[in-house]
Design a protein around this nucleic acid. Structure first.
Lengths: 347, 347
DNA sequence: ATGAAAGCGCTAACAG
DNA sequence: CTGTTAGCGCTTTCAT
């Protein structure tokens, strides 16, 4: 008596545990070949209604889940887009990614995201890992990348979008706004609002520094006083904002001026510390934030800040990528979405 | 005169644009076969030093980036882990994912993340898409999933972790804490702190509702008053917290009691609204939050809240998955990391 | 409308 | 230490 062995073989000889259902298995059950199943899934109109029905039934019965890995290898299209952001817990970035993802998911793309901190070397390693997944496009944050990063991205010959900043020389495409212009605009706003004294509170983000520097230069023009600066190496937090005001008040004797912060979170900390000390905002200490987070309009006093349309940034980045991949109107290399100063009670 | 055509062929006949450098190309340049390159990359000790040197040089020269898609197909290991969270902009989830990712990246795993909102049907579709990438493990948020979701996950025969909640019947593993116990604990805390009146403010999250219901039941035991409830369908925000207090004050005549919120954000809104109306916290309105966010300790008055160690949750989830994949101590099916009530000034 | 064949770029097993 | 062979599960091309 012989034993009929119908198990799949793996590699050279030997058998293994049942791996996922394949298209071939679905085809067998539906009485068609594997290719027909492939067609039924990618373009049902290419298959007769009756065949389609049997295939669908077989898929249902077997619980078949397509293997996108094999599909990507064969078709050279992964339907994967990878994104690199400094931090996934920072709402500034995650809100852009949210709309970016939403827009692309509608076209069946998935987003693979990694954190890079603010270190170009970490970014470089992450780019290599990401490219190994053969994404159909890559999204980066910012415009400063190592030469090696640029080289790899260029060699990949896929759409690349640099988000959240602009430059005349993007790797491929960029969608953002001018941080220098934003710093300048806040300086002009403060001068026009009548503030003669200013201080800055910034986190260690390179772009925040660029905004701050632009602010300081513009505010310091004839008629303006030197600006006091507090800078933190790490990321922003409410407590850092509180600490910063303490330092400005106690160590630097700062009073009767405007404190310009690199984020709403820091600004909120300044506002809280001012309140805790019984200082009037904006009477004694005026405060300007950055980002226009949800809460900016609802704290007391409400926060004067810079609004950047992060949802639009994510959406436009996604659309630029789709235009490139799916063909059609070639997207502009540089998209400047600008910013807006929102004047509320705090300054 | 003849033209020498050395271009790679694709499919059956025809030529195409230069696709990425392959292992075979690297091997050719280094004077070895493709497998040797594969070995040099996966286990350098299996290759002679001189060969290794030549291969590394060839990789450098060509700018070779490994194709993880082909690797995954051949090895049946994708080095990919997928994660499903309700929202990527919510710090509660993103902070867990951050440590989860960090822990796994150290072992060369990448994390593919998607949002599910709070809809099991959306989650079901997302699980199918994720499984098509043949991940080595899957992370889900919460313990409530559609039968079809459970079926697919079970059929995939990979480690599955349900995070942020616990149950006796996980799909595979779960790492979290008891939301019911947390609601009860807050109720006991409030009773012991002497509050006789209570109100709840909750977002539409199923787990938040479960905490609230447990709170209401426990607080309402003999000697306790009925609890007034405000529930929002959507997600939490500072302004919703402010609105909630307005409703409790103006519509329900709530006074001299404790307002228990489903998140620190809502609690912060309540605190701000109370301050805006000149009400004393905790004197006239006491407030309890949930989550112990960064800012909870630094707003004025500081927030009494429930702390959950989100970093530990992400870390333990990652370690459980690694234990499963890499072998070794089998991880416990259920890990309860508990919670802690942090008493500060607001209640 | 359907099928057969060839290959995507790699890893796994076996043989030297 | 290195090479050969046989797939992984699909898509693409060509033929019917």
């Amino acid at each position: 008596m012989s034993v009929h062995d119908d198990r799949q073989k793996t590699g050279r000889g030997g058998t293994s545990a049942p791996r996922g259902v394949t298209m071939a298995a679905v085809g067998r059950l539906a009485g068609v070949s594997q290719v027909t199943v492939s067609r039924a899934l990618s373009d049902p109109s290419k298959v007769s209604p009756e065949t389609l029905r049997r295939i669908r039934e077989a898929i249902e019965v077997t619980g078949y889940v397509p293997n996108a890995v094999a599909g990507a290898l064969a078709s050279r299209r992964s339907k994967l887009i990878t994104a690199l952001v400094p931090s996934i817990t920072n709402i500034v970035y995650s809100s852009m990614i949210q709309t970016f993802t939403g827009e692309l998911r509608a076209q069946d793309y998935q987003i693979l995201m990694s954190e890079t901190g603010f270190d170009p070397k970490v970014e470089e390693a992450a780019v290599a890992t990401h490219l190994s997944r053969r994404p159909d496009a890559v999204l980066l944050t910012g415009i400063h990348h190592s030469p090696q990063t640029r080289r790899m991205l260029l060699a990949a010959e896929i759409p690349v979008v640099e988000l959240w900043d602009i430059t005349d020389t993007p790797i491929d495409l960029c969608v953002g706004f001018s941080h220098v212009e934003s710093g300048r605009a806040v300086a002009r706003f403060c001068r026009e609002a009548g503030y003669l004294r200013a201080a800055t509170v910034s986190a260690g983000d390179e772009r925040a520094i660029r905004r701050k520097d632009a602010f300081v230069r513009e505010f310091g023009r004839p008629g303006g006083e030197a600006v006091q600066e507090v800078t933190y190496a790490g990321s922003a937090s409410l407590v850092r904002g509180r600490e910063a005001l303490v330092r400005l008040l106690d160590e630097a004797g700062f009073r009767n001026g405007v404190v310009v912060c690199s984020s709403d979170l820091l600004a909120h900390g300044v506002v809280i510390e001012a309140a805790a000390r019984g200082l009037e905002v904006p009477g004694e200490i005026a405060v300007v934030g950055f980002g226009d987070q949800d809460y900016a309009a609802h704290i007391v006093p409400s926060l004067t800040t810079v609004r950047v349309d992060r949802e639009a940034l994510g959406r436009v980045a996604a659309q630029a990528i789709l235009a490139r991949i799916e063909g059609g109107e070639p997207p502009p290399a540089v998209t400047d979405l600008g910013f807006e100063i929102i004047r509320r009670e705090s300054a």
